[in-house]
Simulated assay, not measured.
Amino acid sequence: MSAALVFDRVSKRYATARGAFDALHSVHFEVQPGEFFALLGPNGAGKTTLISILAGLARPSSGRVSVFGVDVQRDPMQARRWLGIVPQELVFDPFFTVREALRFQSGYFGIRRNDDWIDELLAGLGLSDKAETNMRQLSGGMKRRVMVAQALVHRPRVIVLDEPTAGVDVELRQTLWAFIARLNRAGSTVLLTTHYLEEAEALCSRVAMLRAGRLIALERTAELLKRASSNVLRFKTDQALPAEIAQRARATGRIWQVKVHDAVEVEQTLAALRQAGVVLEDIEVRKADLEDVFLELMAAQPATAEVHT
């Protein structure tokens, strides 16, 4: 069976006022049928450029992309039938109700009498009570749900989610992931980009990471987590940390997370904090998660960041 998606040494170069800019450098990986796959990277890493090439909205400078063996440049119509893409931007037609928008989207793919599946989408995404509401009257989160429904209305074999939960509430995130996970169990292939790395860790069996347009990691999620070089000491405090500890820590508000390798280092770190007069709350030690691995890889020098397959 063909791979669901193949990115075959894809490069993309843009001409700018400052000269050529390489958004992608020979990116090469495959997504297998039925996988729930994460494509991760910081802003500007090239994720959206790669998805734009997959969607046929941009052309690669070199390389090729295929969907179940169909080249997206040579046969864009067939490739598009197998793809359901949810972009980052909120795009909607203000003149239609939710149901009308989904019926029109069905028509773009030549699908008639699609109301049974539309009803299932509306129910699965928590939109049933909004079916006859004009799109202009929906909140941002509800519009995002409709965009997901539009991407799924033609029952695509591959679902591409580009930051689908950015800026949305917890209820939508839970509803969306429950529905997408159900489709994945039924055989749909899912490609996800997200800055919520806990989502990728929980949902995705394999992860690719991009940095500055280059693929720097490609592994099963479990194997990637095993590569973490440390545990994490987590605590809350309102006080400044000693410089030696602060340089290996990251802060989110008053929550601090410090890399530690073993029990001895935990004790030494806590002793140093006590000696400095830092008052701690809610102390815990946890294993490194995907966010820790991500930050470690993004901070690595290019020569030391290797792709593992």
Results as ranks from 00 to 15, higher is better:
140 G>I: 01
264 V>R: 15
215 L>A: 07
165 T>W: 02
8 D>M: 00
208 A>R: 06
193 T>W: 05
58 A>Y: 13
140 G>C: 00
212 A>V: 13
190 V>M: 02
98 V>G: 01
251 A>M: 11
226 K>T: 06
105 Q>W: 09
165 T>C: 00
230 S>H: 15
263 A>N: 14
89 E>A: 01
226 K>V: 06
74 R>W: 11
151 A>P: 06
249 A>T: 04
133 T>V: 15
189 T>N: 02
203 L>C: 12
21 F>M: 14
305 A>G: 08
288 A>Y: 10
204 C>L: 10
240 A>R: 14
72 V>M: 09
7 F>M: 02
47 K>A: 11
29 F>L: 15
285 V>I: 03
26 S>R: 15
210 L>R: 10
305 A>N: 08
110 G>A: 05
206 R>T: 01
303 A>L: 08
101 A>C: 12
251 A>R: 14
176 L>G: 03
186 A>I: 06
124 G>C: 10
223 E>K: 13
220 R>S: 04
178 A>N: 11
143 K>V: 04
200 A>K: 01
76 P>R: 08
79 A>Q: 08
1 M>I: 13
19 G>R: 09
31 V>F: 11
176 L>Q: 02
217 A>Y: 02
258 V>I: 07
240 A>E: 13
120 E>S: 15
23 A>T: 02
230 S>C: 14
37 F>K: 02
277 G>N: 03
297 L>D: 00
4 A>Q: 06
82 W>I: 09
110 G>L: 06
246 A>G: 05
37 F>S: 03
130 K>W: 07
31 V>D: 06
139 S>C: 00
197 L>A: 06
130 K>R: 11
152 L>V: 10
121 L>W: 07
234 R>Y: 10
19 G>K: 11
185 R>K: 07
235 F>W: 02
100 E>H: 07
214 R>T: 11
122 L>Q: 15
293 V>L: 13
135 M>F: 01
201 E>K: 11
1 M>D: 10
280 L>W: 09
54 L>F: 01
19 G>M: 12
126 G>Y: 13
215 L>H: 08
120 E>R: 15
224 L>C: 08
161 L>P: 12
18 R>L: 15
235 F>L: 01
184 N>H: 07
26 S>I: 12
295 L>W: 05
279 V>N: 08
295 L>S: 04
6 V>T: 09
13 R>W: 11
212 A>T: 14
270 L>K: 09
124 G>K: 03
55 A>G: 15
243 A>H: 10
189 T>M: 03
147 M>Q: 03
269 T>Y: 12
71 D>G: 00
205 S>P: 10
123 A>T: 15
154 H>N: 04
115 D>W: 13
194 T>S: 11
230 S>Y: 15
231 N>K: 15
85 I>L: 01
223 E>Y: 13
307 V>I: 08
29 F>Q: 14
203 L>F: 14
133 T>P: 07
